[in-house]
């Protein structure tokens, strides 16, 4: 027979052993959670199979940089231009209800996940991921190195609710957030229109947002980081481009090519009056090339460049 004291001891021991088991048991879970952000395959295994009335329609599809064109037609070029590694696609279906399509793009880096997010910044801000947007029938966000798109083939109240539920679930599975491109810190802050900022590498994308030339006159490419942004100061507006090159020599070469092709009058560094009455100017600083593509006034063009020069 055990006395009360010894019975109490036994309960303590059992509880202790239980705690050890629980801790040991939860350890793999913690490990799994940490690793979610590392693989689309693991993420897929943990994704919801049900959201509202919708059920995952097997099997999932995955695409790489080549096969993405089979899935999303020409727009696949956008994801390739941001170094997309893989895309996971899952369709959620329910009888008589619009299909919900979940696409998770592994962009390889948080900078490029942010970049592809900036390709289309229309919509209402939503509190999902690091930044999220909702437009009629489409919810998107970025987090870590993933860009997530949830598309409803037709927007209904229930589909929208299910899409939000799914978005939050994916958000929590991804886990860690990631940094934005460091070049953002080089943008002059005054009058910057946050929603106008596009981060890109490829001249095709620059031309999509702001047609500059049929040739790559800024020598943009995978190794260059570029920001396109709009400013508004005292009623005056400007479009501004900032490019970071791998070396000062590459930046110098690109600047010379740009001046020769686009702004030959700007060789001495002054602002140039364009044919549409706007002002354009450019400046190289080490590995950075700043271009005021067009500004309403000479003062604004020159101020922006002066501020870039002053940023450490």
């Amino acid at each position: 027979m055990l006395g009360i004291d010894s019975a109490g001891e036994l309960v303590k021991k059992v509880l202790f052993v239980l705690l050890i088991f629980l801790a040991a048991g939860s350890f793999p879970l913690l490990m799994t959670r940490k690793s979610f952000a590392d693989s689309l395959e693991i993420l897929a295994a943990s994704l919801l199979r049900q959201t509202g009335a919708w059920t995952a329609h097997d099997p999932d599809s995955t695409y790489d940089g080549e096969t993405i064109f089979d899935y999303i037609d020409g727009a696949g070029e956008v994801y390739r231009a941001y170094n997309m590694r893989e895309c996971l696609s899952r369709r959620y279906t329910a009888t008589g209800l619009p299909t919900i399509v979940l696409d998770i793009f592994d962009m390889g880096s948080s900078e490029d996940a942010f970049g592809v997010f900036t390709h289309d910044r229309d919509g209402k801000t939503v509190d999902v991921g690091q930044e999220g947007l909702y437009r009629q029938g489409w919810l998107s966000f970025w987090k870590g190195r993933f860009f997530v798109s949830i598309y409803m083939e037709r927007e209904t109240v229930d589909a929208k609710e299910a899409a939000y539920h799914l978005a939050r679930a994916v958000d929590s599975l991804i886990g860690d957030e990631g940094p934005k491109p460091p070049i953002l810190r080089k943008l002059p802050p005054e009058g910057l229109q946050d929603r106008s900022v596009r981060y890109l590498h490829h001249p095709l994308l620059l031309n999509y947002h702001y047609y500059l030339s049929d040739e790559n006159i800024l020598n943009l490419g995978k190794e260059t980081d570029a920001l396109l942004a709009s400013y508004s100061r005292g009623g005056k507006r400007a479009r501004f481009l900032l490019v970071h090159y791998p070396s000062p020599e590459r930046a110098r070469g690109a600047h010379e090519k740009f001046l020769a092709s686009y702004l030959p009058e700007g060789g001495t560094g002054g602002a140039v009056l364009l044919e549409n009455g706007k002002w354009s100017a450019s400046l190289r600083k080490g590995r950075l090339l700043a271009v005021v593509l067009e500004a309403d006034s000479r003062l604004l063009a020159e101020s922006l460049l002066r501020e870039v020069k002053a940023v450490p």
Partner: peptide, 27 residues
């Protein structure tokens, strides 16, 4: 700069004026 200009740019479009579309200018 010494580089012969061959690229078609936004400024060519601006010079041509709004009567000429960019598409036709590209050609």
């Amino acid at each position: 700069m010494g580089t012969r200009k061959t690229a078609i740019t936004r400024r060519d479009f601006l010079r041509a004026g709004t009567c000429v579309t960019l598409g036709s200018l590209v050609g």
